[in-house]
Computed example of a mutant assay.
Amino acid sequence: MMKVALLGAGRIGQVHAKSITAHDGSRLVAVADAIPEAARKLAGQIGAEVRSIDDILADDEIDAVLIATSTDTHSDLIERATAAGKAVLCEKPVDLSLDRALATLKTAEASGQPVMVGFNRRFDPQFAALKAAYDAGEIGKGELLSITSFDPAPPPIDYIKVSGGLFRDMMIHDFDIACWIFGGPPARVSATGSAMVDPEIGTAGDVDTAAVILQWDDGRICVIKNSRRAGYGYDQRIELLGSEGLLSAKNMLENTVEKITASGASAAKPVYFFLERYMRAYEIEWTAFIDALQSGAAMPVTLREGVAALACAEAATRSAQSGDSVAITPDMLGAE
C-alpha cells in the first residue's frame, strides 16, 4: 500500500483526494495547506492527518506526494520532495518561469526520483482512444491537428493576475496534447490573442481569446483555439486529419438524447465544466501513476514533457507579444 501525502487542499486538491482514497493501492495519510481550515476540513473527510510540509517530507514512511498547491510553489516543492526521496505527481504547469522549470528538471533528474506532471487530459478515454488509433496507423501519417478548448466563463480577475497568462495557464493543456499526439514538441510557434470577453483581462495584461499554430519540421501543423467564454458549456474537441482518413473526439454532452421532428433537430449541450468532463481522467491518471511506481516503469507524463509544454507556452507568449513566430530551441527543452 502506497502511503501518500497531499500538498494543497483547494478545489483541485479535493479532486485528487478522491482519486487517491478510491484506489486500492494508495492511502492518503496526510494533508497540508497554507490555509489551516482547508486542510482540516479535507483531512477530516478522508480520515487523514493535518501536517506541515516539512513534517511530511521528513517522514520516511510517506512514499509519494501529490502537489496541488499554487503554481508558484511547484518547482520548489518538486525539488524538496525528490531530495527527500519521495515520488511526485505535480499539477501542471511545472512553473510560470521556463528558466525555473529547467532548473527544477536538472535537479529532479539528478535525484533519480520519479516525477509525473498532471496533464490529466491525456487520460481522458476519448482522447486516449484517438491517440491509440493514430499510433496504430489507422489514418496514415498525421498532417493537420485541430484542438478546440473553450471554457464556459472566465475565472476571477484576481486569479487571472497571478495565473501566468492564458498560454501558460489554460492552453498549456493543449500544448501537451499536441506534443503527445505528434510524439514531441514542434519546431515553431505562432500565436495571436486579444481580450474580447472582459476588458479587465486585457488591463491585467492577459488575453481571453487566442489562436496558435504549431509547426513541425516535417510539415505537420497543429491549430489550437482557446476562449474563456462559451456560454453553452465546456467545449473540448480534437480533430486529426491524416493521409488516409480523419479521427475526431467530440464533446461530452449532458445527455445523449437527440430530437428530430419536421421542424428540425436538437441535442443536449456539452457538460458545463471540467469536473464533469474530466473526473474520470483524474482517476485514470492516478492509477497510471501508481502502476508506474509499482512496476518501475517510466512515468506516463514525464517532467521533461511538462517542460516541453511550458516551452510552447513561453514561445506562444513571446509570439503574441511580438507578432513573429518563435522557434523552440534545444535549450528551451533542457537539452545539454
Rank of each mutant, 00 (worst) to 15 (best):
R40Y: 10
G44I: 06
G44Q: 02
Q45P: 04
Q45H: 07
V50C: 15
S52G: 06
D54L: 06
I56S: 10
L57A: 03
A58N: 07
D59A: 03
E61T: 12
V65H: 07
V65L: 05
V65A: 03
L66I: 12
A68S: 02
T69P: 08
T71L: 07
D72T: 04
D76W: 09
E79F: 07
E79R: 13
A81K: 00
A83Q: 06
A83E: 08
G85W: 10
G85L: 08
K92A: 01
K92Y: 01
K92D: 02
P93K: 03
D99I: 03
R100Y: 01
R100M: 02
A101S: 11
S111C: 00
G112C: 04
V115G: 00
M116I: 06
V117Y: 00
V117D: 00
R121D: 00
R122T: 00
F123H: 10
F123I: 03
D124K: 01
Q126D: 05
F127M: 09
A129F: 11
L130E: 05
K131C: 15
A132P: 14
A133I: 08
Y134I: 13
D135L: 12
E138C: 12
E143V: 12
I147A: 10
S149V: 10
F150D: 01
P152C: 06
A153F: 13
P155A: 14
P155K: 13
I157P: 04
I157W: 07
K161W: 00
V162G: 03
S163F: 07
S163G: 02
G164P: 12
F167Q: 03
R168V: 09
M170P: 05
M170G: 06
M170A: 09
M171L: 15
